[in-house]
């Protein structure tokens, strides 16, 4: 078992090094991302600030509180595009038969698939993510006690897994239909609209959907509610911050099994 784990770690390390080397061949390719992505998100959160100033707090959520929620959401977004971006391209890989090389190697396919490309562009989302989160947590006077720190870390892991697993599940649709890119953009739009603002601005039906059917509320809304003492509208038997990693792990297990099932349908490139 230990030997097995060691083997995976060493393969992973090599793969990572290769992935970085490949992307850093032209380091200047990152320049436009380094400008564009932070600009996009900093403006995004600033504009919400403008609206809360010109109008009012959004359903009882003040700007600092929204910044805190936005920060958690953006950090988990950046981690998920860092680790799971390949899932956006399953469609192309299925059509081109790119899974062939993974299938002939004696290591798990999903593991190889994830480790094959660590997306450096994810870091350009992490810059505004860190800035907004640090700003948000300081203006809401977030207490960095030992337990709170652990909870935040668990929330980030869980939220990243929820996003990553959702991308994996939708990307895997391509194994059956040969096309999944447009589903990914659809869920991307959903993430944008449900995790950067409090879910409670929507009607209750929508909130129920994004709690039980598509558990995106656990990415940032429920954890933020708990940390900030905001009313979430739902009572759960456990603290929300603990639900997020649980939901994340369950979704990830479902995602991997769907991915593996899809892989059985994979028939390499035609001709």
């Amino acid at each position: 078992m230990l030997k097995h784990v060691k083997h995976y770690i060493s393969v992973g390390a090599y793969s990572l090094r290769m992935s970085f080397a490949r992307q850093l061949e032209y380091p200047s390719f990152l320049i436009c991302w380094v400008i564009g992505n932070p600009l996009n998100y900093m403006m995004g959160v600033w504009m919400i600030g403008v609206i809360t100033q010109r109008f009012q707090a959004l359903n009882g959520w003040t700007y600092p509180q929204i910044a805190f929620l936005y920060g958690i959401s953006l950090l988990s977004h950046s981690l998920s595009v860092l680790l799971f971006i390949q899932t956006w391209g399953i469609e192309r890989m299925v059509i081109r038969g790119s899974f062939d090389r993974f299938l002939v190697r004696p290591v798990g396919v999903f593991f190889q698939f994830c480790i094959d490309y660590i997306n450096l562009i994810g870091f350009t989302d992490m810059i505004p993510g860190v800035i907004i989160f640090v700003y948000g947590s300081s203006v809401v006077n977030f207490e960095w006690t030992f337990f709170n720190t652990i909870k935040i870390l668990l929330v980030l892991v869980g939220a990243t897994l929820i996003r990553g697993a959702t991308y994996t599940i939708l990307g895997s649709v391509a194994f059956w239909t040969k096309s999944s890119r447009s589903l990914i953009s659809m869920v991307h739009a959903l993430f944008e609209r449900t995790t950067y603002y409090p879910l409670s601005i929507y009607p209750t039906v929508i909130q129920v959907i994004f709690t039980f059917l598509l558990p995106f509320g656990f990415i940032s809304f429920y954890p933020a509610c708990e940390f900030l003492g905001q009313d979430s509208g739902f009572d759960f038997p456990l603290e929300f911050a603990l639900w997020t990693p649980v939901v994340g792990v369950i979704l990830e297990i479902i995602a991997v099994s769907i991915f593996n099932r899809g892989l059985k349908k994979y028939e390499s490139a035609g001709s």
Binding site: Y26, S28, F29, L30, I31, C32, W33, I35, G36, N37, L39, N40, M43, G44, M47
Partner: peptide
């Protein structure tokens, strides 16, 4: 080699 300048433009148009 500068990468997608269009991305910066789209970010500006979007905001």
């Amino acid at each position: 080699e500068l990468g997608p300048l269009g991305h910066v433009k789209n970010a500006l148009v979007g905001t």
